[in-house]
Computed example of a mutant assay.
Amino acid sequence: MKNRTSSMLTRRQLLQVTAGGVIVSGLNIPRLHAEPYDDTFTWISPRGTLEVLDDYPFWIGKKMGYFDDLDVEMQPGPSDGTATVKFVDVGQADMGFPSPGVFSFALENGMALKSAFHMGALDTFSFAFRTGEGPSDIKEIEGKTILLGSAAWQSICDPLLAAMGVDVSTITYVEAGWPTWGTALAAGQGDAALSWEGLRAEWISTGLEFEYWLGVQNSPMPANTFVVRAADLEDPDKVEFLEKYLRGWAMGLEFAEHNPAAAVQAVFEQFPTLASNLGPELGLMSIIQQMNVFRGDMSMREGWGWHDMSSWQTFFDTSAEIGQISSPISAEDVCTNMLIPAANDFDHDAVKADAEGAEVSEDLAAVDVEALRASMFDQAI
C-alpha cells in the first residue's frame, strides 16, 4: 500500500503564497491535471499542519488498509487559510479541505472547484471567550473584536454570525497568528477568538480554559468539506479513483464510531509528539467532539460525506446577503452527492468487526468514553 505523508520537498511544496495571497512557484511547473492521477494523489490540509486529530479517518484507513493500493499522500500546506483551495485549483494538490467560507472565496475568485464529500455535517466553528465574559446572546458580540489565526477566517465568521442576526459590519477582526491566537485571547487581547470542535480539547491541553458559544449547538451552517477540481468529476477514470479514495475515508469514519480509542491510537502512532502533548483523555475528548460534527444526524443523511443541500444553500444565500460573494450560488451547482453511494459501498459489519477487534493501549482503554460524551458541552455558554 502506497499511503504516504511527506515532510520532504516535493513538487507540491515548491509553491509559496505571497503576502497578497497569490500562489507563485520557484520553478517553472505547469498546471497539472493527472490522467488520471498518474502522480501521487495529494490531499492538502487547511491548517498548515497534520499533527491534529481532525484527520483521524485517514490514519485509521491507512493503518487498516482501507485505501487498498491507491497512491495517496497527505500534505500540511501553508498556514495561509486559502492555500487549500488555491493549490487544488492550480493542480498542485488534488483535494482540499476548506471551510465553507474559504470554499466560497474560491468560487468567487473563479476557481472551478466542487465539493465532493461533505465531512462537516454540523457546524464545527465556535467563539471562545475568557471565562465569565461570554455573552448570554451571541448578538452581544456586536462591536467586539474577534481574534483569528488567519485573516482568511473572516469568511468563516461573517456568514455564521450573520445567520444568527449579528450585524457583522460592527465586528473588528484581528489576525493574531497561527497558532497563537488562542494565547492572545487568554492574555487579554480581543474579546473572543474563533475556535472549532476538537481544538477546544487541544487548547485545554495547553492550559487555555475558555467558555464557548458553540456552532454545533446553534448554527444552521455546514462545516468543512472535501473539494476537487470540477473537471475531475467529468473524467470516468478520476471518478472511479475518487470513489475508492473516499471509501477509505468513509470506512475510517465508520471504524471510529465503534472504537474511538483505537482511532485516537492510530493518530497517536503517526504523531508521537501529539500523543505526548494531548494524552489519552484529551485525545479522546478531541475526537469525540469531531465525530459529533462529522456524523451529524445520520438518520437524515444518505451516508458519510452526504451534502445537505438546504444547509449549503443557507450558507450561500447568507454569504450573498452580506456581500461576501457578489452573486448568488446554487448549492446544487457546486456540491455533489454523485460519489456518495460508491464511497459508502463497503462491508459495514466487517469494519465494525475490525474496530471491535482492535487493541488499544491500557491508558486509552482506561478512559471513560461515555463520561466524555456526557461532558462534551460543559464549556458551552
Rank of each mutant, 00 (worst) to 15 (best):
N3V: 14
R4I: 11
L9C: 06
L14R: 13
L14F: 13
Q16N: 09
Q16W: 15
Q16R: 11
A19M: 06
G20Q: 14
G20T: 12
V24S: 05
V24T: 14
N28V: 10
N28P: 06
H33I: 06
A34K: 13
Y37I: 01
D39P: 01
W43M: 05
W43S: 04
W43F: 12
P46W: 13
G48Y: 10
E51W: 02
V52W: 15
L53D: 11
L53I: 15
P57K: 02
F58A: 08
G65H: 10
F67W: 12
P76I: 10
F87H: 08
G91S: 05
G91P: 03
A106Q: 09
A112H: 15
A112G: 04
G120E: 12
G120D: 13
G120P: 08
D123R: 03
F125S: 03
S126C: 12
F129C: 00
R130C: 02
P135M: 03
K139I: 02
E142T: 06
E142G: 11
K144R: 12
L148P: 04
W153F: 14
I156L: 05
C157F: 10
D158H: 10
L161V: 04
L161A: 07
G165T: 11
S169M: 03
S169Y: 08
T170S: 11
I171E: 14
Y173C: 00
Y173G: 02
V174Y: 09
G177M: 04
W181R: 00
L185I: 04
Q189D: 11
G190K: 01
G190F: 09
A193F: 09
S195E: 13
E197G: 01
G198M: 08
E202P: 01
W203T: 01
I204K: 13
I204Q: 12
T206S: 11
G207P: 01
E209I: 09
E209T: 07
Y212I: 00
Y212K: 00
L214E: 15
L214F: 11
G215Y: 13
L233R: 02
P236K: 02
D237R: 10
L242C: 07
L242Q: 07
E243F: 13
Y245T: 01
W249N: 01
A250G: 03
A250W: 08
G252S: 08
G252A: 06
E254Y: 07
E254N: 04
F255N: 04
A256S: 13
H258L: 02
A263Q: 12
F268M: 01
Q270D: 07
Q270R: 13
G279T: 05
G279L: 06
L282P: 02
M285Y: 15
I288R: 11
V293L: 06
D297C: 07
M298K: 11
E302L: 10
G305D: 08
S311V: 14
Q313W: 15
T318S: 09
S319V: 03
Q324M: 12
I325V: 15
S327Y: 15
A331L: 01
A331I: 04
E332F: 10
D333S: 12
D333C: 06
D333E: 15
N344S: 05
D345I: 05
A350S: 09
K352V: 03
K352Q: 13
A355F: 15
E356V: 09
G357Q: 07
L364D: 14
A366P: 00
A366Y: 06
L372D: 06
M376D: 08
A380F: 12
A380D: 10
